[in-house]
Structure formats: C-alpha cells, structure tokens
Computed example of a mutant assay.
Amino acid sequence: MCCRGNAESCRHESVRLSRYGRHENSFNNRKMCQLMIRWFEEIVGYFDERTTSGAVEGINNKLKLIKRLGYGFRNFNNFRLRSL
C-alpha cells in the first residue's frame, strides 16, 4: 500500500487493496487485507490528524516491564512504589 501522505490517496489505495485481497489465493495476503480493512479508519485518521498512540503504547510497555520485574516483590506497596 502506497499512501501519498493524505487521507484521500489512502482511501483510494485501501479500496484497491480490498479488491486485490478478495481474489488473492494466499492465506497471508488475505489476512493482511482483512487487517487493513479492519483498521482503515485508524490508518486514515493518522493521515488526517498526524497523531499516533505512541505515547500511550510507551506507557503501557513500561508498565508491563515493571510488572514482569515485580514478580519478586513481597508486598503490593513495594510494587506500587516502583510503578509510580
């Protein structure tokens, strides 16, 4: 998919991709096309607003890392202090 930096070209490419995906025999290509169609509004939203969820994803990743490291804590208060 080759979006040229605006929402309209992204819409055009997604329609072309969905037509291609319906006739494709490869399981992986069909799945990829379904994924693109399912997330279409979010993809177009990026080209409209130029915003991502990167900051939220970073916070979630950090909390998961702390949670993995926190299995050795003896009580929840120590884990909470480490998280904050």
Rank of each mutant, 00 (worst) to 15 (best):
N29Y: 09
R22T: 10
L17K: 05
M36I: 09
F47Q: 02
S83N: 10
V15E: 13
L81I: 03
N28R: 14
R19H: 12
R50M: 01
N28Y: 06
L17M: 14
G72C: 06
I43D: 00
K31H: 06
L17D: 04
L63K: 12
N75M: 00
M1A: 12
R38A: 08
S14I: 06
A7Y: 03
T52P: 10
F79E: 06
A7I: 00
N77F: 10
G21F: 01
C3V: 02
C2H: 05
R38Q: 14
G5M: 02
K64A: 04
Y46F: 15
R11K: 14
F79Y: 12
Q34D: 15
R74Y: 10
L17S: 12
R82F: 15
L69Q: 15
T52L: 15
E8Y: 05
N77A: 09
H23L: 05
N77Y: 11
L69R: 14
V56N: 11
E42C: 03
N78A: 08
L63Q: 07
G72H: 09
F40R: 15
G21L: 00
R50D: 01
I59A: 13
F47A: 00
G58P: 04
T52I: 07
F76C: 04
E57C: 13
R74N: 14
N60P: 10
N61W: 13
G70P: 03
E24F: 06
R11P: 04
G58S: 04
K31L: 07
G70H: 07
S14V: 05
L69I: 03
S83W: 06
E41S: 12
R82H: 15
D48L: 00
E42R: 09
K64Y: 09
K31N: 04
R19A: 10
L84R: 13
R68G: 07
F47G: 01
L69E: 14
R38S: 12
C10H: 02
R30D: 00
L17Y: 13
G5P: 04
A55Q: 01
N28M: 06
N75Y: 04
K67Y: 10
R22S: 12
R68K: 08
E13C: 13
W39E: 09
V15C: 12
A7M: 01
L17F: 10
F47E: 00
V44Q: 05
R50V: 00
A55L: 02
R19V: 03
D48T: 01
N60G: 06
F40C: 12
L84W: 10
S26V: 07
N61K: 14
R30G: 02
R4N: 11
R50C: 07
V44T: 01
V44R: 01
R68T: 04
I66A: 08
N60W: 15
Y46R: 00
Q34T: 08
L81A: 11
Y20M: 11
F47K: 01
L35S: 15
G72Y: 10
E57W: 08
E24Q: 05
F27V: 09
W39S: 08
L63H: 12
Y71I: 08
H23C: 06
G21P: 03
N6T: 02
I37S: 14
R22M: 09
C10Q: 03
S14Y: 06
R4M: 13
G54N: 11
I43P: 01
S83G: 08
N28T: 07
R22A: 13
L35H: 13
N61T: 12
E42F: 03
M32D: 10
